[in-house]
């Protein structure tokens, strides 16, 4: 029964979290803390912190964490499947329509308008990623950055990695892994 409940809770979280990322957070809190009592509020905050420190969308991280806590590995898998099922159905329907109709002149016009907008949205997200990496994400927006929270190691790493990316165009995975390694070295040296 608990597995069904997990599936259904995360199905709803997946269905209502438009916009991705932090949009899912209030729904996770509602389902896991308020309705089902799977987590305490303190555990929920820990979960959010862990999500920021590890890869993956917060909804998937929460599904795994809460699934593990309530019913082990099987629970983690069931909750994760519940979380992605709505996306699967809706996205595949949209994809089908896109490939069927994108040749239409009107759709071409719409897509021509959307492409530059998507680039600027990604750029906007990029700013918050840089901010989180260099300032620990403590400020609310880029206009209220606390200069004192600037992390020198991260700043140097960021600049070096950017130069390497632009000049030598390596596989990004190496740059990220290398930055992680240097971060560890810096921890032991400084």
């Amino acid at each position: 029964m608990i597995l069904l409940k997990l599936f259904w809770s995360f199905f709803q979280i997946g269905l209502f979290s438009f916009g991705g990322g932090y949009a899912a957070m209030p729904f996770i809190q509602e389902q896991a803390v308020d309705i089902n009592g799977w987590l305490t509020m303190g555990e929920f905050v820990d979960l959010v912190t862990i999500s920021q420190m590890t890869p993956g969308p917060i909804a998937i991280n929460a599904a795994t964490f809460i699934g593990m806590k309530t019913s082990g590995v099987l629970g983690a898998i069931i909750a994760t499947i519940g979380c992605v099922t709505p996306s699967c159905i809706i996205v595949l329907t949209l994809a089908y329509l896109y490939y069927k109709y994108r040749g239409l002149p009107a759709i071409q016009g719409v897509l021509k308008g959307l492409r530059p907008a998507v680039v600027s949205l990604i750029a906007f997200a990029g700013i918050s990623i840089v901010q989180m990496a260099l300032f620990g994400g403590k400020s609310e927006s880029i206009f209220s950055i606390d200069i004192s929270s600037f992390d020198v190691v991260s700043g140097v790493l960021f600049a070096a990695a950017l130069v390497v990316m632009r000049r030598f165009k390596p596989n990004p995975i190496y740059v990220m892994a290398g930055a992680g390694f240097v971060g560890l070295l810096a921890f032991y040296i400084i």
Partner: peptide, 11 residues
């Protein structure tokens, strides 16, 4: 390690 990596990801 994670802090270093997030600087790399940002770049």
């Amino acid at each position: 390690v994670l802090r270093g990596m997030s600087a790399g990801v940002a770049a």
